[in-house]
Amino acid sequence: MSAAADLMQCDVALRALIQQHLHAFSVEVGVRELQHAAAVAVAITDAGHGAGLPGLPRHAAWSTQAALILTRRASHLRKHAGQWALPGGRMDPGETPEQAALREMAEEVHLELDADAVLGRLDDFVTRSGFVITPVVVWAGAAPYIRPNPAEVASIHRIPIAEFLRKDAPLLERVEHSEHAVLRMPVGSGWIAAPTAAILYQFREVCIEGRPTRVAHFEQPVFAWK
């Protein structure tokens, strides 16, 4: 973990650092077909009340420690029910990835941001289920009033960025069905699987550490293929 991880604050200095690193990063874009194009918001916010996850302690109310907004998908959804996710979904006709990410975030967690909140993009990630996901990094600030849309989201979690800087991250597992390792990111006493984990790892490497790390080659667990 970086020496400053425990002191990482959601402030103008962090925003400037992330913008600097994204400006220097050359994004790799996948081949998008509209019906398979999606965008997700990698939203930086305050840790607030904490994530409430096993093995991950809660923080003081509306802590200013920097965190990312993640969700658990609703259990009744036809695809990827109950899985960890970043706010996002399919791109509508005529939308840019930035517009789609902001729209989906407003729909899923009731967080409405304008275009000025967008800091940049990470690499497109092509999933086993056939989607080309574009991660859009956005600055969400305190975001004190977010709440889940029960039609899509079971719960919202503000996970401190420091958690993604752990020395045991990422977790890589060799599997028989692929030449590439499955990537997971540990959180508390559990873990998050790719593709979400791959995006989180690239956010850590590019936006925080300033390393131009690629993740598109990493494998996903079989349960995430459908």
Rank of each mutant, 00 (worst) to 15 (best):
P144K: 01
A151H: 10
L70P: 02
A85M: 12
R128D: 14
A106G: 13
H157M: 06
V153R: 07
A143V: 03
E98V: 10
T64G: 03
G82Q: 05
A117I: 05
M91E: 04
A74N: 12
E107L: 08
R166E: 11
P135N: 10
R78A: 15
I69A: 01
D116C: 08
K167Y: 12
G120S: 03
E95P: 10
D168M: 01
S155L: 12
A140V: 08
A169M: 12
A143K: 09
L122N: 02
D114L: 10
I159D: 04
R128F: 10
F131A: 14
L171N: 09
M105P: 07
A154S: 15
V126E: 14
G120N: 05
A101R: 09
T64R: 08
E108H: 05
L56R: 12
D123N: 06
W84I: 09
T71L: 12
D168N: 09
E95K: 09
A66S: 08
A151Y: 10
A115C: 02
R158L: 09
S75I: 05
K167R: 14
P148V: 11
A67G: 12
H157I: 10
P135K: 04
F131L: 15
G141R: 00
M91L: 14
L119C: 03
L122Q: 01
D123F: 00
V137K: 03
N149Q: 12
H76L: 10
R78H: 13
E98H: 11
P170F: 00
W84K: 03
